[in-house]
């Protein structure tokens, strides 16, 4: 059963990829469309990795753009200045962001909730100001001339890897320890869970993937601007909105929200103008009426779908 569902999932994912390739070759999907699809993948990576920190471990971080920026700039520097192979640049971007995550995770042990939120926001801004003052990456002018290495296929593959890795992590003992820290730190500690370690671990892994997303992003657009909306708090809050609307602690929710909230503003020109009025209202409404997000902790998968069918055929047939 288990093997079968993963096989089917794999087949569907491959099919989507081939479909996009085919439609692009046929000229039905334009470069612009493929760009949106690639941005969807990059945003999926960002939201799912933020979900690990905020949703599963309960450490409220709103500085995710900082890790994204580190990955984007560091890797671009590597490919532009040292002509490093791209795959190596992705990993380096991820690792550097991961190290930053480690550095942010360490103070996180002492801070709770809202304090941590502000500190991570501050961290993100410090990163931006540092980039703004670093001539080697273009400073305030922005970083241009980055080679276009990112393809849709690569972004797609990375997004799948991210989702699978984080899903498996969350469903292992490591992930359960993170959940325990989120639910009740004191109880977790008294059960032998080193809460410090798991907070830092979540930050490091989350930051790693955000860094990888940054790498893909900078090598897709070929230009990085040190503005709040690209690598600053506006970006962080964008990611946060996707996460919250999709549901803290739901990977499926993150994926869906990332896709929907990336595509809609592109499709509806008029919407873009009111986007920043509609999003916050949605955010407040969700908090008021469904604080755990639209897909509150629920996961959607082929297995659960199959379970549903099985349940319909024969009641209470436990595996």
């Amino acid at each position: 059963m288990n093997k079968l569902t993963s096989l089917i999932s794999g087949a569907i994912l491959l099919f989507i990829y081939l479909l996009v390739q085919l439609l692009e070759r046929q000229g039905i999907l334009l470069a612009y469309h493929v760009q949106i699809l690639s941005l969807c993948c990059i945003n999926i990576i960002l939201v799912v990795s933020l979900n690990l920190i905020n949703g599963f471990t309960g450490q409220f971080s709103i500085g995710h753009a900082g890790f994204f920026a580190i990955g984007a700039y560091a890797s671009a520097y590597l490919t532009v200045t040292w002509q490093v192979p791209f795959i190596f640049a992705i990993i380096c971007g991820g690792i550097l962001a991961g190290i930053a995550g480690l550095a942010v995770g360490l103070p996180a042990l002492r801070l709770r909730g809202d304090y941590l939120a502000i500190a991570t926001l501050g961290f993100g801004e410090i990163i931006r100001v540092i980039i703004l003052n670093t001539d080697a990456v273009g400073g305030a002018r922005g970083f241009s001339g980055i080679p276009k290495y990112t393809t849709f296929g690569l972004a797609y593959l990375t997004a799948i890897i991210t989702v699978v890795v984080i899903r498996n992590f969350v469903n292992s003992d490591y992930g359960r320890a993170c959940l325990a820290v989120r639910e009740d730190e004191i109880a977790a500690e008294s059960l032998g869970v080193n809460s410090t370690y798991f907070k830092v671990l979540a930050f490091t892994i989350g930051a790693f993937f955000a860094g990888a997303a940054g790498t893909l992003f900078s090598h897709y657009l070929q230009y990085m601007a040190p503005t709040p909306s690209q690598i600053g708090f506006v970006k962080s809050i964008d990611i946060l909105i996707m996460l919250v609307l999709g549901g803290l602690g739901s990977i499926t929710g993150s994926v869906i929200a990332a896709i929907v909230l990336t595509v809609i503003p592109e499709l509806l020109r008029g919407f873009a103008e009111y986007r920043m009025i509609i999003y916050p209202i949605l955010l407040i409404l969700v908090m008021l009426y469904r604080p755990s997000g639209l897909l509150a902790g629920q996961e959607f998968s082929l297995a659960s779908l199959a379970q549903l069918f099985k349940g319909a055929k024969a009641h209470g047939n436990h595996s």
Binding site: F60, M276, I277, P280, I281, L283, P291
Partner: peptide, 20 residues
Amino acid sequence: SSRIAVLITAIGASLLLQST
């Protein structure tokens, strides 16, 4: 509600005032 929910609402309120 949880403090996180209130915090998210506060962020939402901030964005809303700004864009309005």
